[in-house]
Design a protein around this nucleic acid. Structure first.
Lengths: 143, 143
DNA sequence: TTAAGTGCAAAATCTTTGCAAATGT
DNA sequence: ACATTTGCAAAGATTTTGCACTTAA
């Protein structure tokens, strides 16, 4: 249920499987944390044109293949969606953690709790990002 | 406790009260919702240089005078901090609502609930943004 | 074969930096 | 008078657009 191969994912979404698209999916799956756009550019910059990367990422988000998590700096981070996601109803209802030291974005197991939204407002999605120091950096930063 | 005048706020923070700084505070206070940077630029563009606006907003966020709420698009929105905020410990622990129709950002009365963060991660701040249709747009969008 | 996807060039934005002139205390 | 703040010019970064070439089906 969890780890479909890049090619499977592309097939399921009627997308041509080009080597650029496959590389992007491989790279993001390989990572335990969400990957920032700058990190992707740095990593794939020689294989994939910057513009193509923008287009691939947008396509993936539209199709519900990737989550886009925008952090406090306005930087986009991408993570593979769980199987529950689809292009129509895009549920990204787990908590994200953005380390203010290493800047990595983690998808936590914690689910976003029910929120009492003010009468009259209709919430369709909720983004909950915790900012602080991640597990790794906590160890290192023994100042 | 709530509505200090722009000049009072500047005095309290040892900032010179220039007409540009006062205009920014007036404009943001006048609004019930948070104000986006593009909206501020559009409104104040003839009175205040774009670069000056960046600097004023950054100063205000550093001093804890304004909250910066970054929405899904990476756009910064600004709202006056409650009295509980300070430059050192900056608590912005209420829920924000970003209307996907009019793009306005509302500060809701709802507080951010306690979250169980995964062992090892140290959360220092939490941003919770609900996306959907705001009160006003709900009325209008009777499609 | 042909529709979709990529790369390159270039435009449009957005954000930061440096410095001289203006302003508040 | 003096330290800050502003505005302008310019550099740097990010994101979008258009179009010819390439590639997967």
């Amino acid at each position: 249920m969890a780890n479909a191969s890049p090619i499977d994912i592309l097939k399921q979404n009627n997308l041509k499987h080009t080597k650029q698209r496959i590389r992007v999916l491989e790279d993001i799956s390989a990572n335990a944390t969400a990957v920032s756009q700058p990190a992707l550019e740095k990593k794939l910059g020689k294989e994939i044109d910057r513009v193509t990367l923008y287009r691939i990422l947008n396509t993936y988000v539209e199709k519900g293949i990737l989550h886009r998590i925008v952090d406090q700096n306005g930087t986009a981070n991408y993570a593979i969606c769980s199987s529950a996601c689809s292009a129509e109803q895009h549920h990204d209802e787990h908590v994200h953690f953005n380390c203010t030291n290493c800047n990595k974005v983690f998808c936590l197991a914690t689910k976003v709790p029910e929120i009492n939204i003010t009468e009259g407002f209709k919430a369709e999605a909720i983004s909950l990002i915790a900012y602080g120091i991640c597990k790794e950096c906590s160890k290192t930063l023994t100042l």
